[in-house]
Amino acid sequence: MTKFLALISMLALSLALSAKELSPPDTIFHYGCEGSLRYAIAINVNDDTSFTGICIMKSMNVRVVGSVVNEFGIKAFDFIYDKSDGSLELHNVISFFDKRFVRRTVKGDWKYLLAFEAEEKKDRNRKVTVDNEGTIILENVKHHIRYILSPLASI
């Protein structure tokens, strides 16, 4: 029993060490000289996979512009984030995301993620973690939505 508890403790510790929870104003996205990032993305709602695909984002002066598409290339949505005023707009939203509640929630989540460096404090309804391999997880605790962004090797 004692050995079992020790094993569980070590497992919990190793998991805690492998994923680090971020706090503002930590930097999440490191654009590098090309100014572009690519991720494999999964969006889970209530622990069910709702969407998988690719997220590409570019830093263009004061704006971050991005597209989320599925593996076949079908667009889920575009977003434009303006660093100067912290605003975020969704564009070209596919029909099954294009419901008022969904848009508002997705917009709020992505705005929190992209504005993270400029935030003054954590949002108690949202949590951002990053692991050693650079996988970013944004969790909307209130609505049980999880966005998982895993870095994609560039080609």
């Binding site: 690519r38 570019k58 512009v65 598409v69 290339g73 564009h91 560039s154 080609i155």
Partner: peptide, 28 residues
Amino acid sequence: LLDDKLESSGKMYFKQPQNLKWEYVNPY
């Protein structure tokens, strides 16, 4: 919107009457 492109590749298999496999290999 990004003035960019995403390239991927893979393999496709088809067999009558209605069997289709679409497998992406790279970059995902």
